[in-house]
Design a protein around this nucleic acid. Structure first.
Lengths: 354, 354
DNA sequence: GTTTAGCACTCACGCTCCCTGAGTGCTAAA
DNA sequence: TTTAGCACTCAGGGAGCGTGAGTGCTAAAC
């Protein structure tokens, strides 16, 4: 059954007032607040209906109403107005987006911290590849006769390196040979194609070179593994305590440790975002994880390029300023997409063309 | 004035009981608890003396005594017995110490997380170089005609790389030239010796190569800067809420945001450790930062090698199990020192000598 | 001089009781 | 269908009170 216009107006007013004050809203307050020209008694009747239909809840008989998850859902779907960010807000975000382009994981972590700061809620960030990665090329750099640097580059254009120190001597030609071998045998293989047998064969071809092949390939595997299973970064957990719903230390404690410790589980919470494209809002019981049953999550995803997607999100009480948070989040996500889209030649030093 | 044996025993009993229970300790409880063969009345007299001398405090007239910072200090200096870790505990730590050798900053962050988990207090970790770093060598790897990888290695043997994409063509000989130039002009220079003039000169020598020199050197400077001013990693802030002294959300909130946000200030808190060698304990007002006035900090430092030192520490209420925490911390620090001391050939793959 | 027993005193904590006021649901009139 | 009126409910806050742990002091015992 479709709600009447007035009831929608009332529901919306309840939600917005409750978001602001965290106090149950009464009929009298609503009569004055919303542009309704009816008396509090009328509103009371409507409130009773809305409560019966499950959109509102009553903490106790003699208190006002608060929105139920169902109420929030309706609000988010139909009643909420897209929040436009103020000039100041966009400026603030734009400034924050001027992050130094560093290694991918650092940037992701920074994005999380930024979002947390912008919204005053705990935030998390993660990246996920939609496909299996492979190594595109290997390079070995001789440092001195007892050490060399291995540089590997994935097909997603991430480059990682590691310094190896050896117990024995090493020469340039040897290294050349190894490089060639690596580049023939191990390029273009996904993580589980890099089998021990493959290594043994290559090792054999290399002759007696102290298992260097395995050493470098193990490193490459670590790199692939780290990229494919990159962790979830969380930031600003302490912001939880800003909000009255977490004055109860026990509650705060539970949620907080879920957010900061349980990294593997935290991943579950972002999966929904990887399907759709734009901003997603998950309200209370809509979350799969039990720990988030009275918590809401707002998610936005962005494009990293090379088949990778990033997700940033914010966690907070169901009484959350969805409009504002969603607006900020999607603005940030857009910004990040653009950032990753542009070529690597950084804006920091293009003016060197004298 | 030196305290009598009995008074010391009493003080110690008060501290240890309070550390366990977080409840003020009364004379009767003490009479039974400590191996003192005197009555509660006698103890009351001693307690009164200890209170007068500032070692103990009384929350209110009809409550027992709790240790003052001065009392904790005496306890830590003279009365505390070195805690020996149980077999299980050392085993647990040893297992945790098997961290994958990754990039330095990752390892440091992990160490912090580990310590927090071991002690159930928030922990932080940082690294600090005692000297100015320089770049030891540059390598450029041509990927294709429009991109190359720059690899820089510092004199502390840290290697970093970055992929550059270019708007224009590039050839192997060009790159060779650039490499030589970089290795002659910019090696061995500290951050502030890498002046714009130096770059301009080198740029000139390189001819028209799109400011590539500056690009790479800027990257090198970023690397040096990041290493010299590496951030403070904090972990497990939510553990604060485990302890009754932070049931007051306001307090917890304050300290927590100090720990997690205010990274620059958090550095101040670790400086003391960089002077001495072994474990350091800072009790309440001994801390410089105002936010830590009723908080204690336990610090341990370890050797990273190449002139770098690491510090790990733990933050908690003054009622902290100093003996245990200090023992764990110094055990971990020792472990880390050893870990960094050993050659890079990792223990993970030495068995490849078929 | 030190230790002990005894005793009066203090005061946080938890309990109940009570009042207040916001907010409700219902009824009857407009 | 809306409104005014009214009785009812109930959380929250304050006052008052009893309890008990713990104290300081005094006077006797060692």
């Amino acid at each position: 059954m479709e709600l009447s216009e007035r009831k929608k107006k009332i529901l919306r007013a309840v939600v917005e007032s409750y978001i602001q004050t965290a106090e149950p809203v009464g009929s009298k307050a609503l009569a004055e607040l919303a542009g309704l020209k009816v008396s509090s008694a009328t509103i009371r009747n409507d409130l009773a209906d809305l409560t019966e239909q499950g959109y509102l809840e009553q903490p106790h008989t003699s208190a006002g109403r608060i929105p139920s998850p169902k109420g929030y859902r309706l609000y988010v779907n139909e009643l909420m107005e897209e929040q436009r960010l103020s000039l100041e807000e966009t400026k603030q975000i734009n400034e924050a987006l001027h992050l130094k382009m560093q290694e991918l994981d650092k940037v992701i972590g920074q994005a999380g911290r930024m979002v947390s700061q912008l919204t005053n809620y705990p935030a998390f960030a993660l990246a996920e590849g939609s496909r299996r990665l492979t190594i595109k090329r290997f390079d070995l750099i001789l440092v001195d006769s007892a050490s060399f640097i291995a540089v590997v580059m994935t097909d997603s254009s991430v480059v990682k390196n590691k310094l190896f120190r050896l117990p024995a001597d090493l020469s340039e030609p040897q290294l050349q040979l190894l490089t060639t071998l690596l580049n023939t045998a191990f390029v273009g293989k996904t993580l589980d194609q890099l089998t021990p047998e493959l290594m043994r064969v290559a090792e054999h071809a290399a002759g007696g070179s102290y298992g260097l092949i395995s050493l470098v390939v193990s490193f490459a595997m670590e790199v692939l593994d780290a990229l494919e299973n990159s962790p979830v970064y969380t930031a600003g957990a302490s912001h939880l305590l800003d909000h009255p719903e977490y004055q109860d230390v026990g509650k705060a404690q539970k949620l907080m440790s879920y957010l900061t410790e349980d990294r593997s589980l935290a991943q579950a919470l972002a999966l929904p975002a990887l399907e759709g494209d734009d901003t997603k809002i998950l309200i209370g019981p809509e979350n799969v994880a039990d720990e988030l049953k009275d918590t809401s999550v707002v998610l936005a995803s962005y494009d990293i390029g090379d088949g990778m997607k990033g997700v940033i999100g914010v966690v907070g009480p169901t009484r959350m300023d969805y409009a504002k948070v969603a607006a900020k989040l999607s603005y940030v996500a857009d910004g990040l997409s653009k950032l990753f889209g542009q070529p690597e030649l950084p804006p920091s030093a293009p003016e060197k063309e004298e």
